[in-house]
């Protein structure tokens, strides 16, 4: 398994001349860097910038390297940076299997087997034809993580990924998300309000 590495060099993001954040960091595979801070300090802008969605009203500078390659100028779909949102966001018009298939790179052979295998790994054998709306909250989170991993990202961004979950689900989802990312050797940046998230991630914490 290849271990990936994400480097942020002199990242500056500002809005209308006012600097929102400045950041230097290096994250290696399996590590989660947690970024905390009150709302409005530019946590989401950081993720949008790294993923390639920063709105044109922001000014940003700096270099983002993924496995040594500078990705700043690449469009979002070519960056190999995956994203987990607060909600599982399974595409409502696709089946569970269709959601996973959407993430598989076009070059992958034998997609059906890969999808079944991914479903089996989270205890959802035979769920491929199901409507995502019929899954429980925990099951949806697992499918969302599998979908992310099937897209073969080299780094992952987590945008308050557990804040919408019930407290009993939160611990469970946290555990399998962090375990999954570690097993895949992916560097991750997590933005959160929740100190427990940061503890569970076990990595460095940056306060903005």
């Amino acid at each position: 398994m290849k271990v990936h590495r994400l480097q942020l060099e002199n990242i500056h993001i500002s809005l209308e001349g006012k600097q929102l954040l400045a950041l230097n960091a290096e994250i290696s595979g399996g590590e989660v860097l947690t970024v905390m801070g009150p709302s409005g300090v530019g946590k989401s802008s950081l993720l949008a910038y790294l993923a390639g969605f920063l709105a044109p009203v922001f000014e940003a500078s700096g270099l983002t390297r993924l496995d040594g390659e500078v990705i700043n100028e690449l469009p979002a779909e070519q960056r190999n940076v995956g994203l987990l949102f607060q909600d599982a966001l399974l595409f409502p018009h696709l089946s569970v299997g269709g959601n996973l298939r959407f993430a598989l790179p076009a070059t992958v052979q034998d997609k059906e087997a890969r999808i079944e295998q991914a479903l089996a790994s989270i205890g959802l054998e035979g769920f491929a034809e199901r409507d995502p709306e019929t899954l429980s909250g925990g099951q949806r989170s697992r499918v969302a993580l599998q979908r992310l991993l099937l897209s073969e990202p080299k780094a992952v961004l987590l945008d308050e990924p557990f804040s919408r979950l019930d407290s009993h689900l939160r611990r469970e989802v946290r555990e399998f998300v962090f375990a999954g990312l570690k097993a895949a050797g992916l560097p991750a940046i997590m933005v959160t309000h929740d100190a427990e998230d940061a503890d569970a991630a076990g990595g460095r914490v940056i306060q903005l």
């Binding site: 969605f53 979002a76 779909e77 960056r79 190999n80 966001l89 595409f91 959407f102 993430a103 897209s151």
Partner: peptide, 10 residues
């Protein structure tokens, strides 16, 4: 977020 998510999936 739908299109952002799709883009990050490649």
């Amino acid at each position: 977020r739908w299109s952002q998510l799709a883009a990050t999936l490649g």
